[in-house]
Amino acid sequence: MIVLMKAIMKYLLVAALTLACSAAWSFDFEEEFTKILKDGVQKKIEEKSDAATSSALLGLVGISQEEEITIGRQIAGNLLGASALVKDRSLQIYVNNVGRWVASQSERPDLTWHFGVIESNDVNAFASPGGYIFLTRGLYSLLQNEAELAGVLGHEIGHVIRKHHLKILQQSSLIDLGGKLISRQIGGSDKVQKLIGNGAEIVARSLDKNAEFEADRIAVVLAARAGYDAFALPEVLQQIGHFAKDDGSVALLFKTHPHPDDRLEKLGLAMSDRLEDVKGKTLVARFYRIKP
């Protein structure tokens, strides 16, 4: 009887161990499978930077809009911790009107978009997931008309609608398993902060060059759709290209973006004669001049 009991116990132990190993293998396999799937999708995106394709593929490993806004809000709050808003309500309302109108021409017209001009003499603009977009006082001061502002905001809107920064986050190990893990972990700003790294460093990271070129192409189209002169963004790029390379105010911009000459070349190839006959407004008279 005791021998029989020992045999049964041994059998049960072996069975339990087998089951445990099987479960562990199953978990590893699932994790590995997810990684392979994600890597495959990313590779596919890099192979073909076509806008519609990248958008569709990103959707496979995407996160919910609510999660995107939670992440973007944290990044925006951090960025504003580094540079506060220019305290000019009329300016901020004006920029939000222009930005919202341009964003309404995108495939995410109902996102709650936010735009702001921040206190920095650097020439730069930043996009954060979920529709938070900022440009510096230094960049705004270079602009000559509303169409140029629309072009600059259109570029950043392009980053948001193509989820370029989320793609960077997805490439990090912190959200390796994608949206489901985020939704379980997000419970407060501390946890979101762990997700995005230090402060607002995510906006200082270089995106893939193709993402910048894609955002330029989106910008001129959104501006054209909104009724603006599509050639306004190239004019801004031209002005930025005239900064001396060692000018500190463009140091971060030049570090994180392709040179304006390269961007103009790529835009020229993409625009070709497609936008030549599209007339648009510049609205010089309505352009809000920033106070010094």
Partner: peptide
Amino acid sequence: ATTGIRGLDEVELKSAKYN
């Protein structure tokens, strides 16, 4: 660029505190 207001570099962005 006009002067008088500080720039916004990587170090500042990394150390930025949520506002």
